[in-house]
């Protein structure tokens, strides 16, 4: 693939990271269903109201069980992995030039990127399937 196409994807994934990252932040901070935001404090007469953003672990996990959210996280993982490992490829190929170095860098970044992607997908799937 021509470098201009790869760079187009790099810029596009950069933008998508903002979108999916925003959604991810939204999901975890505001949309997490916490109907009872009351925390009982041991040996105290009153209940404390939890303020913005404090999360119940189980409710967070519930988000992962929702197919739409799982899809958003999977897409987030995809764009982050591409953007990060293509970025590493660019940085490394500036430091180590030459055709052999270039091949080694491209393939190793592809393989490591794939491993990270598969591992991340596994995590999302495990959470989704409970």
């Amino acid at each position: 693939m021509r470098e201009s196409k790869i760079m187009f994807l790099q810029y596009l994934t950069g933008l998508l990271i903002l979108v999916f990252g925003g959604l991810h932040f939204l999901a975890l901070s505001f949309l997490t269903p916490s109907p009872d935001k009351q925390l009982y404090v041991y040996q105290s007469a009153t209940n404390h109201t939890l303020v913005g953003g404090a999360l119940y672990y189980n409710y967070v996990l519930d988000i992962y069980k929702n197919l739409a959210w799982a899809a958003v996280f999977e897409l987030f993982l995809t764009v982050v992995t591409f953007h990060a490992f293509n970025g590493f490829r660019i940085i490394l190929s500036e430091q180590f030039s030459g055709p052999t170095a270039s091949k080694v860098i491209s393939y190793s970044m592809l393989i490591i990127g794939l491993i990270v992607f598969i591992w991340g997908t596994r995590t999302i799937l495990l959470a989704f399937l409970g």
């Binding site: 021509r2 470098e3 201009s4 660019i90």
Partner: peptide, 9 residues
Amino acid sequence: LDSKHGVWR
């Protein structure tokens, strides 16, 4: 120009 060490670097 459109290479690994061209305009995009």
